[in-house]
Write a protein that binds this DNA or RNA. Structure first.
Lengths: 366, 366
DNA sequence: GTATTTGCTGGTAGCGCTGTCAACGTTCCT
DNA sequence: AGGAACGTTGACAGCGCTACCAGCAAATAC
């Protein structure tokens, strides 16, 4: 027990090295690149570390190596369950790796994002995951100047800072409206909340589709900056009904709103889809078990987070992806709430399986 | 521009000190305890730091001071929206403070929790937030031995490691069942998923209430270890119906299950609450706008997270709370889905406001 | 007026680890 | 056999900051 001089037996790399009978630097290498050691020493260091319960001091490592093993993640909201799926993917992918996640919330403010970015970058993160493509020019410049890999998630656009993974919200919205057209609905309302850039692009897609079909009418649009909720869905739908009582279908910018619309229909005894069809966005779990089951645009959020983190870690470790921009696409999950119109027979409440026809995959964008 | 020798103009504390005309140590003090400086130097250092855009190197600080400004948070799940509310509270409270949040996911495994705890503790966090009171004895020992403040969240129990904030799931479940008794329901089923310790204690509360009333019947209980979902709610309810077709009400261990039960009732054309009453747990946002509106037990998750982080930061900075164990209570939000039974008149679909009667607040526990 | 306290400032010496480079022994090649 | 190439190891010198203690001036006490 005379090995360590510090009180309370602090285990440093030096202690491990001493027990293993090697120099500290060799022990250090064991943790960073075990392959560089001979088999014998590798085993000796390993068992010494285990015996002493050695845990490396990350601060010292970061200071000495001039880099951290932190992946910074900037997302606009913790409330929105869309992001909790993405986060789950990110955390899952980071688990087992040496990297730890540092999460910050921009609250949908690109100025706040810029501030946080400056803070993050100063700590020399190993990599960065940022949401969306609407950074300030200042943020843009900082990201360009930084020497760590960066992944932009949630959507794809023309000028990736580095890597990018997401899908086209514009195309996805067009596909949703296209599906409703196919099913025979023409007078389609739009209900949106929060109206962040991605929701805005969904609105753009909706508008373009409606205009192309010669069906555009501004009275069909209800949008608010208020954060989304199920209750709000009901309220906005009520609004929409008063502006356009003759609507045949509603495209909801997210599933919470769609559920609110469904409940409001039930409250008003409006039959879905016979009187009004509903389509949501994101395909949260509950959509498939609602009554009627609710059509939605599936977005691969968990996979997006997971792939983003995996790509990032690969890039950090020098394995740059051959494809820096990944379009994860979307998929219109057709369910009862958007069954074909003007069929005289009441639609049977059958299972959804048969109705899950794939309408679009990778959004063949840019 | 000949000030700094390092390439690319790295700004260290020394640069700031030089520009301000003070020693590095004085500059250092400015950031840790400005009050210790004379007014004049304080201003000089401040403007020098701003001019150079100085950002402290956290790794160096941590290494030199032997402590970090990291608050470790251990939660069992990122999927469960209960935790996203708690997390939002934690992040909100940490914002503006000097502390950053380090989140890890135990996946409902106390062994995983133990492993993560060891990792965290080795980095000397400023404080720790852990979920629940069911740590392994080893974890318990590590927590006791650690010298940083610790808050246990989500529930309260007899032996706090340090601080504790939550409520009694047992009492809350009893209150839910008590409410159903009051409304005239006797044959009450239990539907639970995941069955983590807190859900288990809700089940215990349910069982105790039923036994006390002489109404216990094991066929009334459907519980599974499967993670919760709306769809699962429907499936478990189907199970329950087959085991006990004569049930009058269902207590769902969480709101997702409750929504699934509601949809399943609709699918089977079972009138709620006329044929079967429903009560959920957590009072997620959608409960109040479902049709019928769904009764639930409100738990103050955001406040719990926020208060936990605030208490922790206070404790870190030496302001220990006078009350180390905080019971945040719960509240049965009475809504249409549990309207009084055997009233011959169909219950009117009135607003919920009047029905929001407080049944219980702080759970007067230990 | 001297002794003591207080407030502010600076010097020195690391915190625990890793980057760089040199040196060693071994194997392989010509 | 001699030299090059490789694989493996270690010495040294910091990374940027802060703990500790000493020093100095101004304020207070006697």
């Amino acid at each position: 027990m005379g090995r360590k001089r510090t009180k309370s037996g602090k285990i440093r790399l030096a202690e491990v090295a001493e027990l293993a009978g090697v120099s500290p630097i060799t022990a250090s290498r064991f943790f960073r690149n075990p392959a560089a050691l001979s088999i014998a020493k590798r085993a000796r260091v390993e068992s010494a570390a285990k015996e002493l319960g050695y845990v490396p001091n990350l601060a010292a490592r970061a200071l000495a190596s001039q880099r951290t093993e932190v992946i910074g993640v900037l997302i606009p909201s913790l409330t929105n369950n869309v992001f909790s799926d993405v986060l789950r993917g990110i955390y899952d992918a980071s688990e087992g790796s040496r990297y730890s996640i540092q999460l910050s919330n921009t609250r949908y403010s690109i100025l706040q994002e810029e501030k946080l970015l400056r803070l993050f970058l100063a700590q020399k993160p190993a990599g960065l995951i940022v949401t969306g493509i609407d950074q300030t020019t200042e943020s843009q410049a900082m990201l360009e100047a930084s020497d760590c890999p960066i992944v932009q998630i949630m959507e794809i656009g023309p000028n990736p800072v580095d890597m990018m993974i997401g899908f086209s919200h514009y195309d996805a919205a067009r596909a949703a409206i296209g599906h409703l057209f196919d099913q025979g609905y023409n007078r389609i309302g739009f209900v949106g909340a929060r109206m962040d850039p991605r929701v805005q692009r969904r609105l753009d897609g909706y508008q373009a589709a409606m205009k192309d079909a010669g069906l555009f009418d501004s009275r069909l649009i209800v949008a608010t900056a208020t954060p989304t909720s199920v209750t709000l869905g009901g309220a906005l739908f009520t609004d929409l009904l008063s502006k356009a009582p003759d609507i045949e279908a509603v495209f909801c910018a997210n599933d919470d709103l769609a559920l609110g619309v469904l409940f409001e229909c039930r409250r008003r005894e409006i039959a879905v889809p016979e009187q009004i069809a509903i389509i949501g966005f994101n395909d949260l779990e509950f959509m498939a078990s609602a009554v009627p089951t609710l059509t939605s645009v599936r977005t691969n959020r968990y996979e997006m987070g997971r792939t983003a983190a995996t790509m990032l870690i690969d890039a950090i470790e020098g394995r740059r992806p051959e494809q820096p921009v990944l379009d994860l696409g979307y998929r219109v999950m057709e369910r009862q709430s958007s069954l074909a119109r003007r069929s005289d027979s009441r639609p049977a409440l059958s299972g959804e399986a048969a109705a899950n026809k794939m309408v679009a995959l990778p959004s063949g964008h840019d």
